[in-house]
C-alpha cells in the first residue's frame, strides 16, 4: 500500500509539473503532427499500401517516444531534484510512478497521432475498438521499454543516446504494431481477435510484460548511487 501511495505521489508530481508548463506534451504533439504532415505530404502524390501508411505512423511515434521519454530522468538531474526523490521514495515506487506518467504521456500523443493519421489519409476505420487497443497496448510497450533506458542515459552524455539504445530492441514490437494497426484499419471485427491479429496483439502485450518485468528487477541497480 505504501508503495502504491508513493508511486502515485511521484506520478502526481510529474503530472502537476507537466500541466504547469505543458512544455513536454506540447512539443511532443507538435512534433508528431508536423512529422506526420511532412511524411504524408511526401507520399501524397501517389497512393501507397496500408502497410506503408501504418509503418510511417509508427516510425513517427517511435521517434516521438525517443525524444519525449529521454527527458524522464534527465529532467530530475537538471533540476537537481533526483537526490530528493531518492530520499523520499523507494526505487520501485519511482519506477512505477515514472512508468505510469510516461504511459499517459505516450497514450495521449499516440491517440492524437492516430487521429491525425485517420484525418490526413481519409481513413475509414473498420475496427475502432481494436485500433484503440493496439494504440494503448503499443503505448504501454513503448513506455515499458523506454523508461528504464531513460534512466540509463542520465549519466551517459544525455538524451542523444536513447535512440541508439532503444531502436534495436524495439524491432519485434515495430513489426507487430504495424501489422495489428493495418489489420484493425481494414478488416471489420470478428469477435475475439484471432489469427494474425491475435498473434500480433499477444506480441505487443508480451513485449510490454517482459520489458516492464525486467525493468522492475533492474531499476534498483540503475537508480541507486
Amino acid at each position: 500500500m505504501r508503495l502504491l501511495r508513493s508511486a502515485f505521489a511521484v506520478l502526481q508530481k510529474d503530472l502537476r509539473l507537466e500541466l504547469r508548463s505543458r512544455v513536454g506534451i506540447n512539443s511532443l504533439i507538435l512534433f508528431v503532427f508536423t512529422s506526420l504532415f511532412i511524411a504524408f505530404f511526401g507520399i501524397s502524390q501517389q497512393p501507397v499500401g496500408p502497410r506503408v501508411e501504418a509503418a510511417l505512423l509508427w516510425i513517427v511515434v517511435l521517434f516521438a517516444a525517443a525524444i519525449g521519454m529521454g527527458r524522464t530522468f534527465v529532467a530530475e538531474e537538471e533540476q537537481q531534484t533526483s537526490l530528493l526523490l531518492k530520499l523520499n521514495a523507494s526505487p520501485l515506487a519511482i519506477y512505477l510512478g515514472k512508468l505510469t506518467f510516461n504511459f499517459i504521456l505516450l497514450a495521449v500523443v499516440n491517440l492524437l497521432a492516430t487521429g491525425v493519421f485517420i484525418v490526413l489519409l481519409n481513413k475509414t476505420v473498420a475496427d475502432p475498438v481494436t485500433l484503440l487497443g493496439v494504440v494503448l497496448a503499443g503505448s504501454l510497450a513503448l513506455a515499458g521499454s523506454t523508461t528504464l533506458l531513460s534512466a540509463l542515459i542520465v549519466h551517459a552524455g544525455g538524451v542523444g543516446l536513447l535512440p541508439v539504445l532503444m531502436f534495436p530492441l524495439l524491432l519485434p514490437l515495430m513489426g507487430a504494431l504495424v501489422n495489428a494497426t493495418r489489420i484493425s484499419l481494414s478488416i471489420p471485427p470478428m469477435g475475439v481477435p484471432t489469427g494474425v491479429l491475435g498473434e500480433n496483439l499477444t506480441t505487443i502485450v508480451a513485449f510490454a510484460g517482459v520489458t516492464i518485468t525486467a525493468s522492475v528487477l533492474l531499476f534498483d541497480q540503475v537508480w541507486q548511487d
Partner: peptide, 24 residues
Amino acid sequence: RISAAYNVFAFTTMPFLLYVLPRQ
C-alpha cells in the same frame, strides 16, 4: 553498473528475435 543493466535488459528481449520475428 549501467552497461551491465543494459546488457541484461537487451538480453531479455532476445526471445522476441528468436521466436516471434520468424512468425512475422
